[in-house]
Design a protein around this nucleic acid. Structure first.
Lengths: 251, 251
DNA sequence: GAGTCTTTGTGTCATTTTTACACTATTCAA
DNA sequence: TTGAATAGTGTAAAAATGACACAAAGACTC
């Protein structure tokens, strides 16, 4: 019945889980990968939840988060950052989760501490419907999510705050864009993360002054308007900046 | 032998602990409350460690951190903020800790995830030698700590970073100062947290412009030099600021 | 009580950064 | 050819920052 090898199963830590807030950007708005738990769960709260799992005793927290991300999307070497630990006492598992919990030998009523991570992926690297992985996962615009199962909504909120804060200090936004992107796309990305409008000219001036973009001598093709120049993030120039003690993008 | 009531003991979660980085300020530099584990532990690594403890299953993480702080210092209602979760797989407990761990029914070789917090206290509120609590705790200047037991040095580093970052966004430094303080003391506090010199006049100008200090019509007494005006943090004025979306002290 | 010690408290100017704001250029599609 | 859509660009006023030096106040000593 349980075809999980006993050795593996016994290494699962029933008290600590990892949840991932996986951000994407659809060139319009910030999105998050959420899992539809299905109608069976619906009676016990919102259907949508963040991907997550219990950790194994032989991996550290970062590894567990990578694993969860990999298991869901097949992606490796993705930008990941811890948001923090969450957990109220005696979180009672929903009836519908008990079967699953039992199947992995976790105690249905045990206390679970969850360590939340956020990660940034290029949305084109994971197209749920094309994927052979979980078919019940999908991108949802962050701003359209008003509830999630368990304490996941709170976690999402914390992850958004952390991302907002972090992007003021490090240019991690590039992880959400394709290799080649336009300034307008970068502009819209910053607006959706910071959740406020930014003046177009001032944004471009500020970004260009930092000198961390390479202007590829290449233009967009096939757009029904004036095509934009394409740019690329220049890691080396950014390294130079940080070695000078730079840590403020001033947004 | 074990005079811990079984009921209480059985509520301890052997897998999750809380460690506290308790900051103080001695008017010269930033300090941290560290515990001397004594010579018995010394053979197994640094004597000094951060205060911490396993959590109970009937408290949440914030409550556990408050409790640890209270148990050590007797202080309640203290500024506390989570730093993050730490924990490598199978952290093997030191021989010298095993007895203690057994006494609280924890498994000596179990994996422990620790959730770190930092807190800010007025140093005069806890004078270790006068205290009836742990006599082996004491304030140590942050910059003079070069090693700590377990992964506590890493945690201290993370806490310092978080504090540095946070003070650029919120005026939490007041928690480290007495009710009435001078601008010079505030100045030195910011310098020690940010770990860089700040121009005196520019600092004063910036702080005063924020308009979150009340100038008490009172002066220092008994100092062997020109006495300074005393100031007080004005919470209401700060609330007005934040409600206008202010979140950048520009340091 | 004169002199010394120590820290407080203050202003200006040059430079940089920020903000607000509008029109022309380029491509695709009809 | 025209219309629709977005790209790309400059300036001027206001605000913030950084660099910098000296007189004033009280405590202490002789």
């Amino acid at each position: 019945m349980h075809n999980i090898p006993k050795k593996i199963a016994s290494e699962l830590n029933p008290n600590v889980s990892v949840d991932c807030v996986i951000f994407g950007f659809d060139m319009e708005q910030l999105t998050v990968l959420v899992i539809d738990r299905g109608e069976i769960s619906a009676v016990n709260g919102p259907r949508l939840a963040l991907p997550g799992n219990l950790i194994y005793d032989n991996e550290n927290l970062d590894q567990a988060a990578s694993r969860v991300l990999d298991e869901l999307t097949g992606l490796k070497d993705i930008y990941l950052e811890q948001v923090g630990a969450f957990g109220d006492p005696f979180r009672i598992h929903k009836e519908s989760d008990r079967e699953w919990l039992k199947s992995i030998r976790a105690q249905p009523d045990a206390r679970v501490i969850t360590v939340a991570y956020f990660s940034l992926v290029k949305i084109s690297d994971y197209l749920p419907h094309a994927s052979s992985f979980a078919k019940n996962a999908g991108w949802a615009p962050v701003n359209e999510i008003s509830e999630l199962a368990f304490d996941h909504f709170e976690i999402l909120q914390a992850a958004k705050d952390k991302l907002k804060q972090k992007i003021k200090i490090q240019p991690i936004g590039f992880n959400l864009l394709p290799e080649k992107f336009t300034l307008s796309q970068l502009h819209r990305l910053y607006e959706s993360i910071l959740d406020k409008p930014l003046d177009k000219r001032n944004f471009r001036r500020k970004i260009q002054k930092l000198n961390i973009l390479s202007n590829l001598k290449e233009k967009q093709r096939g757009v029904p308007h004036k095509p934009s120049s394409l740019y690329q993030f220049n890691e080396e120039k950014y390294q130079e900046l940080t070695q000078m003690g730079f840590d403020n993008f001033g947004f």
